[in-house]
Amino acid sequence: MIEAIIALLAGMSSVFLAYYLAALGHAIVEKSGILNLAIDGIFVLSIAVAYAEAVYTNNNILASLLLTAIVAALFGILLAFLVTKFPISHGAAGLSMMFLGYGLASLVGLPARNLQGSIKGLEIGYTIDINNPVWIAVYIIIILIGLGALFFINKTKIGAAIRAAGEDPAAAEALGVNVLMVRLFAGALGFALIGLGGAVFELAYVQVWSEGTGMGHGWLAFAISLSAGRHPLLLILSSSVFAGLVKYMTTIQAMYNIPTDLAKMLPFVAAILAMVIFMATPLRRRLAPPKSLGKIYFREERTV
């Protein structure tokens, strides 16, 4: 019995880490008041970048992770800059970046896949499973990151500034917080984490690439983050549920004889249910979203 549980835990560790990083990054971005609808596009793009870099560097995992984080962070900075500097809708900017992410992902991934096809025996990725003790480290890392993020958001000066920018940017600005800089930082950090999540998803879990790989999983991370109220430790719980669901979908499907396509649907149904449960119960008041999330903050308006 215990062996079975350990095997289960080891098997889902890679997906778990991927979802946790992406959901945590998303939570940090939204804590600063930026409504992040670009998440799925950037997640898909990160997957493609991680894949392509791994193919080009002959499976250099570190380079792949690093490049993906940088690319994603650049998009985070762009989004943060646009919605803070200009009076434009967060939703519109985020959604357009989602489409851009989808498009760029195919452009990045396809040549790399053609190259991989032409080189015999080139396989990418780093498998984390029961035979690789790294899986224990993954769980420890997740808990450490969770505690670190909790400390960072609640106890440090920059964390307080991020929360202030999300709750009431105008008041924060009056108290001497540079909202633009804070959001740029939160955007870069958050999107770098989303990018890392995508890279882990590709390198440790999927390990192949075809057009559209990972589409929809960014939205799962969105739902994971929302249903945990963007709390770094609760995120561990909700991302583990979804990681288990996604990883063992095929097992569940075989056990109960569910057709593949219906099984693929399950995580999305669960994601919507999780959001509904969160919003319909007192949890919503306990872990309320930042007050200015997605609201247009336009500094120059005051000077007119």
Partner: peptide
């Protein structure tokens, strides 16, 4: 030969993003 649905998505994404940014100049 390059990109599946990619090209349409690049079109959609960059036009929408430009639009979202430029909409400010109609009022500002």
């Amino acid at each position: 030969g390059v990109g599946g649905a990619a090209v349409v998505n690049v079109f959609i994404g960059s036009i929408l993003l430009t639009y979202a940014v430029l909409i400010t100049i109609s009022e500002y």
